[in-house]
Design a protein around this nucleic acid. Structure first.
Lengths: 332, 332
DNA sequence: TCTTTTCATGAAAACGTTTTCATAAGTGCA
DNA sequence: TGCACTTATGAAAACGTTTTCATGAAAAGA
């Protein structure tokens, strides 16, 4: 494994001092054309590329940001990551991605690891960590987080209005004439999930209906829980003409259960999800859902973090949630 | 932003030399219990964590590996990344993930960037780069790649038998009595895609059938191309009782087109995909497909890379492709 | 008891950069 | 021609670790 050439090698090769090479590389001071040419040639000859560890050590900047997701392999985080990736493009920054696995403990642990790696900043996607803990970490490095309302000099949070989103979905269903609408919730300890349930309740209330607890069944945001929930609903003989799932993944599960029981969507039952994952445009039939601006959040979070890192002011707004009507809902 | 404490701070705080602190941290030499305790206490008090840039610079090890995917937000790469993540668990390694966006140029560029970052090794997932280029880079750092047959001291590749996988899928369809089987191919310049087409042809041949070029339509591995392909097939009045899509994503597209035209799956037409993405167990109906051991490849690639990095011998085998029969195929 | 060996520890050099500081050469002005 | 300034460049220190080397004290061998 041939050890790569160093700046010193280049300097020797070009017959100048290391300082000069550095100056040329960083454009930090004027240097004669003669030497510049010699150095350029030497760099080309040796294939030199600056050692980023040394650079980082000296400059106190790693040009790396840390990203904490909760699940590396989830379409939900994927879209946001794509936004982050695009946001980082041509900035000279790279990202190290770690997963908190939806566990506050592990989340904190990962952040500590990132900090030890001297990342210049952190993007935290969702998670279960308390806001205070986030602020604590933010004293070391700037942090921007999704799913929290935060705003200090070093920490910034973007929070979508889950309650409103759920309300949008419900209003759609109600306008189509549905009255008995089942709800497949998310994990109990998840705030997004709680807010969506809240929106479900409010919409019902506003329509002069009252929520039937037998129509609300606990899920966990995964496909399988949607399947189980629908199955439970059907087995317990509840009457309903629509189901609203707290996220797209569980809507997929509901859909499958319905299919298995020979219940047609949307003919017999309407279905709406939440998230608008890329796959939701290609389910059979395509899923009516609430679009979260996942990609945009990734981009915006990244831009904001970069500004924070450079000590600049940030003020960013994210697009609102919106209903996207596809083919799983129908007038009753 | 409070500057974090250094090893020197700890040493001063504990009244010992930096060397001693380092020795305790790394367990690299025996030190008296008295000093050990003092140092531990000082570490706890100061909240010291070693600066990984300094460590990396000194040790010549960044404890970071680079991962090159082609699409950050694809379920295909997701599963493999999950395997990598699990494989890295408790190894002290972190990974920086970059995307080549299916472009050989960009791929090489990303790898150069990773190398400048002094990653200890690279995992390359698919891609369009020539094998020679990979070997070239492998002279600087060990590389393990999926989708290539490679084996040198510093480079290792795992290749799945796409041709066999396609053959498996086709045999299944043929055994069910299907004779006119359409094929939605992948991108022309993708070797995996070419091999799958080859498997399609071979199976037909072995069954004494000859491939009808009108039943083979070009796709690009995305949902939309599946939709288009099926639409084209239908519009051109071809007779067929089954379609084999070169990957699950395009199978989803085919499925949607069929649904729109009122063609039932599997009653009217059978459908099989390739990949077994996580979502494929929850399509309506669940998709019969060829399972790629994506997760396992990630794990194995990671283990192998770590061994390569440590200068150890590697010999690893990956599980074979297998047919998973779900509910989109039926005897004709 | 005296020498030899082992052992714990500190001092200092090193990793590959950037940056401060010093300096010699070049410029302008009288 | 001499003086004060710029200006380009090199020497050396610094970033925060690890590791080699040296050293004094303790343990072992005689």
């Amino acid at each position: 494994m041939a050890s790569p050439s160093t700046l010193l090698d280049v300097a020797r090769e070009a017959g100048v001092s290391p300082s000069t090479v550095s100056r040329i590389l960083n454009g930090t001071a004027k240097v004669s054309d003669e030497k510049r040419l010699a150095v350029m040639a030497a760099i080309a000859r040796t294939g030199f590329a600056p050692n980023q560890m040394a650079q980082g050590l000296k400059k106190g900047r790693s040009h790396t940001i840390g990203i904490v997701v909760q699940d590396i392999a989830s379409p939900f985080f994927d879209e946001t990551l794509r936004g982050v990736d695009d946001g980082l493009k041509d900035t000279g920054y790279a990202s190290v991605i770690v997963s908190g696995h939806w566990d506050a403990q592990e989340e904190a642990e990962r952040i500590r690891l990132l900090l030890a790696r001297k990342v210049d900043g952190i993007i935290l996607l969702s998670g279960r960590m308390a806001d205070e803990a986030v602020l604590q970490f933010a004293q070391q490095r700037p942090i921007v987080s999704t799913g929290r309302a935060l705003k200090t000099g070093h920490a910034l949070g973007f929070k979508l209005d889950n309650e409103y989103g759920a309300w949008l979905a419900m209003r759609h269903l109600l306008e189509l004439g549905h009255r008995r609408i089942a709800f497949v919730s998310g994990p109990e300890d998840n705030v997004d999930a709680a807010e969506r349930l809240q929106g479900y309740r409010r919409a019902l209330e506003e329509a002069g209906l009252k929520a039937d607890p037998r129509l609300i069944v606990q899920g966990n945001f995964h496909e399988n829980s949607g399947l189980l929930a629908a199955s439970h609903l059907l087995d317990s003989q509840q009457q309903f003409t629509a189901v609203f799932a707290a996220n797209d993944l569980s809507a997929y599960g509901v859909r499958l259960c319905l299919y298995r029981k020979g219940i047609r969507v949307p003919d017999d039952v309407s279905l709406v999800g939440f998230d608008d994952l890329p796959g939701s445009a290609y389910t059979t039939p395509p899923l009516t859902t609430i679009r979260q601006p996942l990609y945009e959040m990734g981009r915006i979070a990244t831009h904001s973090l970069l500004r924070l890192i450079n000590g600049e002011q940030v003020q960013a707004a994210i697009p609102p949630l919106e209903l996207v009507v596809r083919e799983t809902t129908r007038r009753r």
